[in-house]
Design a protein around this nucleic acid. Structure first.
Length: 615
RNA sequence: GCGGGUGUAGUUCAAUGGUAGAACGGCAGCCUUCCAAGCUGCACACGAGGGUUCGAUUCCCUUCACCCGCUCCA
């Protein structure tokens, strides 16, 4: 236990990240994008090993989420879509926020979310210095709250005027003379920064979506690069439903690029401006429909028994049960590709953190070296995936904005409904109506409109019609790649007989994700028989798994190279292979990455030996 | 976007107002019977632009990128 990431010194987060970054560059996992031109902030490329790693991860996800399930189908949509989609999804409003800035602290706040404040406004027309020729005539104002001394406001003003001047550096700003002081009272004003009290700048649009133009001739139509892949799934929902022979509950999966003009890309590839997502939108029956068909809705606590196992889906599951199911399913996926449970955090978002569309969201966090620590010194983790219960918000929004119906017809519901007692019908109708009305009001409908539409919606139930709800497990591929690399990173320090100590790096990837599954090498390069046999073995394995042939340098050097690349197995052709000991003819040495252990495997059995270990 | 720091070979570092060295790594060859051995040779760098100067990697300015702290993170 002296060679794993978790035992590296706790304080070395930044130093550890530096080592990981340079390893990634050196071994061809990750390069800065456009590096020969100086790089471009927030963009990263994957090199030979990185692209294999990423391909493996995406393929495993796809296999787990789509190929090995009956109830999820795939989609690959375009990056540029109809601009109205982003209006319907809310991104045009929330991603293009009007922001105001505090001139004192430079902090930015959303223009529509400034807390109203009351107090006395102190205004100045400028400031000048006796000690230097400094003079400034910009107006500045601070809100003085109850109980604060006017000198507090004056101090802030001097700080503001001195900002970036020599006076600020020498500390002489305290002597600045403020000019043109006036006061006024303010009640519930939203013009002042809640923390500093300084008057905020005018609101400016601040757009996190990348804009582009469709069409070569002017005036071209403005469009956006998608800031998430989810909306494509919602907009193609009806097409998929009608062509895939799926019925709720079922999901649509997509892997693809998304783009966000992040304010500050940071932490290596963790927050990139161009990134890839792996998402499923899993469409389920609303709870009222489940209850109509099954007679009851299973509680979340009923499922998954024992707790470590993932329950099999049941027809009486409502959104809570499905949500919990996907949380467990996804954590199992991460464990299955080598992220140990203790490296992950299952974080249930608090009510006030939830996005406007979400009923519940669980974030799966990975404890990155750069993560902040809590009071107990424990890494708190950064989000790899969010699993959101989004109700019927998205499909409803697209129904409203496109005017196209997004509901489904469900024969089971229609049949079940007629068999229900009148009281039950009324109760379910009422609940569905209330939920729809609540959504519609939130979406901006007036009371009357909402009542009318919600009534129509609820009247669909007896006919077997409803708008599905959705559970969305949405993962960031690039974040996961970074987590896998951080998790795999380990060092072994060895002292040789000459007393030299040397630190070697081993990337302990799970064999499933490892870029290279096996290194194939002759023990010695200058023995043609060994080389020939090794090349035969490479050719034998190559159609099935990614192998790497290497005969450069000494055998130890080649092992070390493969350790750094995270290759779980090395296959070595030696003199026994050629029959030096007759009983070992046509066997090879297989060397294990993590502990250097060796075993002999017959060449005829090699592929069957390797395959189950690398998938 | 703000403040602070840093930019020299693939990586980690050094030196210098007169255009740069090392270690490791890489490549080629020799050698090598299992964990970065050795020998020989080769290739590879002053982030970019501008200014000062006879001359700038070095000083100044701008810019870009990276790191840290704020901010942001639907």
């Amino acid at each position: 236990m002296n060679d794993t990431t978790n035992n590296l010194p706790a304080s070395s987060g930044a130093a550890l990240m530096e080592k990981i970054v340079s390893l990634c560059k050196r071994r061809g996992f990750i390069y800065p994008s456009s590096e020969i031109y100086g790089g471009i902030n927030g963009f990263w490329d994957y090199g030979p090993l990185g692209s294999e790693l990423k391909r493996n991860v995406k393929e495993l996800w796809w296999r787990d989420m789509v190929l090995e399930r009956d109830d999820v189908v795939g989609l690959e949509a375009t990056i540029i879509m109809h601009p109205k989609i982003w209006k319907a999804s809310g991104h045009v409003d929330t991603f293009a926020d009007m922001m105001r800035e505090c001139p004192l602290t430079k902090k930015r706040v959303r223009a529509d979310q400034v807390e109203p404040q009351s107090g006395v406004i102190y205004r100045w027309s400028g400031a000048e210095s006796h000690a230097s020729p400094f003079k400034c005539e910009k107006p500045f104002a601070v809100l003085l709250r109850k109980g604060e001394h006017p000198d507090t406001a004056r101090k802030k003003a001097r700080e503001y005027y001195a900002h970036g001047t020599i006076d600020a550096e020498t500390g002489r700003w305290k002597d600045l003379e403020l000019t043109g002081e006036t006061t006024a009272t303010a009640a519930d004003s939203v013009d002042f920064h809640p923390e500093s009290g300084a008057q905020l700048t005018e609101a400016r649009p601040f757009n996190l979506m990348f804009k582009t133009f469709v069409g070569a001739s002017e005036p071209a139509e403005e469009a956006y690069l998608r800031p998430e892949t989810a909306q494509a799934i919602f907009t193609q929902f009806k097409n998929v439903l009608e062509t895939s022979r799926q019925r709720t509950p079922f999901g649509i999966a997509q892997i693809g690029k998304a783009f966000r003009n992040e304010v500050t890309p940071r932490n290596y590839t963790f927050r990139s401006r161009e990134f890839e997502q792996m998402e499923v939108e899993f469409f389920i029956k609303p709870d009222e429909v489940v209850e109509a068909i099954s007679g009851k809705v299973a509680r979340a606590s009923e499922i998954s028994n024992p707790p470590s196992a993932i329950a099999n889906p049941r027809s009486d599951w409502g959104w809570e049960a499905w949500h919990k199911y996907w949380v467990e399913e996804r954590i199992a996926f991460y464990e299955g590709i080598g992220l140990p449970r203790h490296s992950l955090v299952e974080y249930w978002q608090k009510a006030e953190e939830l996005a406007h569309y979400a009923r519940a969201t669980v974030d799966i966090l990975y404890r990155f070296p750069f993560s902040k620590r809590n009071d107990g010194g424990e890494l708190m983790g950064e989000e790899l995936e969010g699993i959101a219960a989004r109700s019927d918000f998205d499909l409803s929004q697209h129904e409203r904005h496109s005017g196209k119906p997004m509901g489904v017809f469900d024969e089971d519901l229609r049949a079940a409904w007629t068999a229900l007692p009148k009281e039950k019908q009324d109760a379910l109708w009422k609940r569905y109506y209330e939920n729809r009305k609540k959504y519609l009001v939130k979406a901006g409908a007036t009371g009357d409109e909402a009542h009318k539409e919600a009534t129509e919606d609820a009247n669909g139930l007896p006919k077997g019609q409803y708008i599905p709800h959705v559970i969305e497990p949405s993962a960031g591929v690039d974040r996961l790649i970074l987590a896998l690399i951080c998790n795999a990173y380990s060092e072994v320090t060895e002292t040789d007989e000459k007393g030299r100590s040397e630190t070697r790096v081993i990337l302990k990837f799970h064999p499933r994700v490892a870029p290279i599954k096996a290194g194939v090498m002759p023990l010695l390069k200058n023995k043609p028989a060994l080389v020939k046999k090794a090349m035969e073995i490479r050719d034998l394995l190559r159609p099935w798994i990614n192998v790497f042939y290497d005969d450069g340098g000494s055998i130890g050097r080649r092992y070390a190279r493969q350790d750094e690349a995270g290759t779980p197995f090395c296959v070595t052709v030696d003199f026994e292979t050629l029959g030096e000991k007759p009983e070992l003819l046509d066997t090879v040495t297989v060397r294990h990455r993590d502990d250097g252990r060796q075993e002999r495997v017959k060449i005829s059995e090699l592929l069957n030996w390797l395959m189950p270990r690398v998938r």
